[in-house]
């Protein structure tokens, strides 16, 4: 179900915890699975559950509690923009409006070509670099101006 490489990565996470606490690696395992599959389909969740010796519903609880997991398919690039107060004070809402207009979609929507999904996020702990968005949960882009947004979007394949 998951590639050998992903499994190896999960094993490395499992090794961080006491032997009878494999479950501690569930967040990492879901992250790794999501990186490979793009989102967490029920089969993926069941696979992770079996792999770590957990009940599927217990894994599902985790997957639905932390909001960086995608429980539905997303575009090739998921852009999560922080709109919390400190970011809003520094223009996050303007960037949001700009993104929506430019991409022709609202929050929680994906462009028709399946390329970009736009999400609204809560504080990234990076308010000094506001406004900020996160690409695919990994790459953070800060101090966003409209020009900067244009440049970043142009770079996305």
């Amino acid at each position: 179900m998951l590639s050998a490489e992903s499994k190896k990565k999960i094993d490395r996470e499992v090794a961080k915890y006491p032997a009878d606490w494999k479950q501690s690696a569930v967040m990492a395992a879901l992250r790794i699975a999501q990186d490979e599959k793009g989102w967490l389909a029920p089969e993926t969740i069941e696979f992770v559950a079996d792999y770590l010796g957990m009940e599927a519903i217990a894994v599902y609880e985790v997957a639905t509690f932390y909001n960086m997991y995608n429980l539905e398919p997303v575009g090739k690039y998921k852009l999560t923009l922080c709109t919390n107060l400190p970011c809003a004070l520094s223009g996050a809402n303007d960037v949001a409006a700009y993104l929506k207009e430019k991409l022709g979609i609202g929050f929680n929507e994906t462009t028709p070509d399946g390329k970009i999904t736009l999400k609204e996020g809560e504080c990234f702990g990076s308010c000094g670099y506001a406004p900020v968005f996160l690409i695919n949960n990994r790459k953070m882009c800060g101090s966003l101006t409209f020009a900067e947004v244009d440049r970043i979007l142009a770079e996305l394949e």
Partner: peptide
């Protein structure tokens, strides 16, 4: 992976234990 509450110390412990 995206839950402010995990900054609360016992929530954080639960989270390390692989729970909500």
């Amino acid at each position: 992976y995206g839950a402010y509450i995990c900054g609360e110390e016992t929530a954080l412990l639960e989270s390390i234990e692989g729970k909500k």
